[in-house]
Structure formats: structure tokens, C-alpha cells
């Protein structure tokens, strides 16, 4: 920050904007919750929430929608971080919901879609009125249209054609009972901004974001780990190579990328040079159709 010029760096600007959003929600909405997956974006969110209310603790719990398809490194990270911060963790469990009959396993084994009803049930049960999510507009074209305060009706649905205009830094958080707001403090961040911030703030992230040796196999041009959620089919052969994860989602359909980036500096270099978006490179769930994300969001997805 060059104080004498009264001009903020891009990271300071983005941080100030996000902190403003966190405080605005805490001031205006009754029962917020922060969605925390253990992924890098939600880890950055946690840091920003910590900063926004310092020296007081952040005034809301965190929630993990647990698909049961987890990378063990991520789950372990989640529990450690939550313990360090002393915040409450709410877990909305998909396996549990399957057992109770709330949702049914999909034929392809992916739990991406069925986590939505589980999320919505938890929101209703805990009467959460605002959910902080780590989604960024640069991730995906439907997200590029989404507001920082994204209104959801009492079915949790997003109506992209009927969004509230958002001007200056004035956010409209007014809702009726049963409705909610999804709040995206990282809206204006890019993948590279997130990594620059992780570097600047020396934020720890799960080890799978850095290059490591893993047994993988190739499917649809992507590298999947050979683990209990995802086994090679006939004709797919496994091999050990150096990979890292750019995104962390459902372990059954999140792919790794070949990479030697084993430090934050090297990851930044790699992200700056890459010619593929993080979702395009690693997410089977977005490949369903042109509007896969828009359709899922309308149903109440993150």
C-alpha cells in the first residue's frame, strides 16, 4: 500500500470490499452462516471474516455440506482450522440424508446435485437467513452475472432474470421469513488474486493444492485419483505422477492437474500461465451442458 498516494493495491481493495460485505451482513441479517468446505476460497473467506470483526470473534458459525466424498487431507484441515478459531461447525451430511431417504444416490455416483436439498434442509432447520459462499464471478459465466447479495426465495431458488440491482456499496439484505440471501464476498476476486492473497497472508491450505505424487488414471482428458470414490473403468489404467488440485470438490469427480508447483510461488506462476479455467480443467460437474451451473444454481446450489 502506498499511503502517500492514497491508492490501495488491488489486494487491499478486494480485502476492504470483502470486509465491508461481511460486516454489512452481520449488521443487517439475523442468522448468517459461512459455508466452509476446506477449499482455498472458503479458507480465504474465513481469514477475511476473522479480520472483519477483530478483535471480537466472528459472530456466526460455519457449515460444511459433507458429500461423504472427501479428500482426507481436506477433512483433517477443516477440523483443525475450526478448532483453532473456536467457531461452531454445523455439518450437513449427504450420506446421512441418503440413509434418511431425503435424497437418492444418482446413477453416476456423483453427489454434486443431491447436496442441494441437503443444504436447503440445513438452512431451514437452523433458520439461517444469510449464507456466505466463496464463489467468484471469474469462475463461470453464470456466476459472472450474480450479485454479491444474491436473493433466494423460500425454495432456495435463484432467479437470474429477476435480480436486485446492486449499486455503489449499498446492498439490499431485506427478506421475508423463509427467504435467504447468498452472500459472495469474493465476487470480484480471480483465482490469481486468491493465490496472491494466500501468499501475502501466509495462509495454510490443504496439502493437495501443492504438487505431490498420486496414483491417477485418465478419463475425459482429466486425471482422476484412484481412490474409494473413483475407480478406473475397463480400459483405464492407473499410473503414478506428480499432480496437484486446482479446486477441491466432490472427490468422485474433481480432477487433478499435472504440476510441479510445490510452493505458493510456483502455484502463482502456474496459475498466471495457464490457458484453462480451473473449472474447465478439473470439474466433471460443469461439463454437462453450456448452462450446467445456471441450472444447478436455480435449484438452490451454492
Amino acid at each position: 500500500m502506498t499511503i502517500h498516494e492514497y491508492q490501495l493495491s488491488q489486494l487491499d481493495y478486494l480485502e476492504a470490499e470483502a470486509v465491508h460485505v461481511f460486516r454489512e451482513v452481520a449488521a443487517e441479517l439475523e442468522r448468517p452462516v459461512l459455508l466452509f468446505s476446506g477449499g482455498k476460497d472458503s479458507i480465504v473467506m474465513l481469514r477475511l471474516a476473522e479480520k472483519a470483526f477483530w478483535p471480537a470473534p466472528m459472530p456466526f458459525p460455519v457449515m460444511h455440506v459433507d458429500t461423504g466424498h472427501n479428500f482426507p487431507e481436506v477433512l483433517e484441515f477443516r477440523d483443525r482450522r475450526v478448532a483453532e478459531l473456536g467457531v461452531n461447525l454445523v455439518v450437513a451430511s449427504v450420506p446421512d440424508a441418503i440413509e434418511r431417504g431425503l435424497v437418492a444416490e444418482e446413477p453416476n455416483g456423483s453427489r454434486n446435485r443431491i447436496q442441494t436439498p441437503v443444504l436447503l434442509e440445513a438452512v431451514e432447520k437452523h433458520r439461517f437467513s444469510a449464507l456466505f459462499g466463496g464463489a467468484r464471478r471469474d469462475e463461470e459465466k453464470a456466476r459472472a452475472k450474480e450479485r454479491v447479495f444474491s436473493f433466494r426465495d423460500d425454495f432456495g431458488q435463484w432467479d437470474p432474470k429477476n435480480q436486485r440491482p446492486e449499486l455503489w456499496n449499498l446492498y439490499n439484505g431485506r427478506i421475508h421469513l423463509g427467504e435467504s440471501i447468498r452472500v459472495f464476498p469474493l465476487s470480484n476476486w480471480t483465482e490469481l488474486d486468491v493465490w496472491h492473497y494466500i501468499q501475502r497472508e501466509e495462509i495454510a491450505v490443504p496439502s493437495i493444492y501443492y504438487a505431490h505424487q498420486r496414483e491417477v488414471f485418465e478419463r475425459d482428458g482429466m486425471l482422476f485419483a484412484n481412490n474409494e470414490f473413483c475407480r478406473p473403468r475397463e480400459g483405464e489404467t492407473t499410473f503414478v505422477t506428480t499432480v496437484r488440485y486446482r479446486t477441491v470438490g466432490d472427490a468422485s469427480l474433481t480432477a487433478a492437474v499435472r504440476s510441479d508447483a510445490d510452493t505458493v510461488e510456483k502455484v502463482i506462476e502456474e496459475v498466471a500461465a495457464t490457458r484453462l479455467t480451473e473449472r474447465g480443467a478439473t470439474r466433471g460437474d460443469d461439463r454437462v451442458s453450456e448452462a450446467a451451473m445456471e441450472d444447478r444454481k436455480k435449484e438452490g446450489y451454492f
Binding site: 488491488q10 464471478r137 471469474d138 463461470e140 459465466k141 453464470a142 456466476r143 459472472a144 452475472k145 437470474p160 432474470k161 435480480q163 465476487s187 470480484n188 480471480t190 490469481l192 488474486d193 453450456e290 448452462a291 445456471e294 441450472d295
Partner: peptide, 29 residues
């Protein structure tokens, strides 16, 4: 089509809503 992200926009070939896009040069974001 890069910026018209909504199904309705792509179908109708119009921009309905504000879309936010990001790029950076060595000097500025």
C-alpha cells in the same frame, strides 16, 4: 457468447444484465 452467460441471453442473442469480467496487465488489474 463469452460475456452473455445466461441461457436466455444466449438464446436471444442479447445482453440482459451486467456481466463482470476480469483481466490484468503487469500494471493494473
Amino acid at each position: 457468447l463469452l460475456t452473455d452467460g445466461l441461457r436466455a441471453e444466449r438464446e436471444q442473442g442479447i445482453t440482459i444484465d451486467v456481466a463482470y469480467r476480469y483481466f490484468a496487465t503487469p500494471r493494473r488489474k
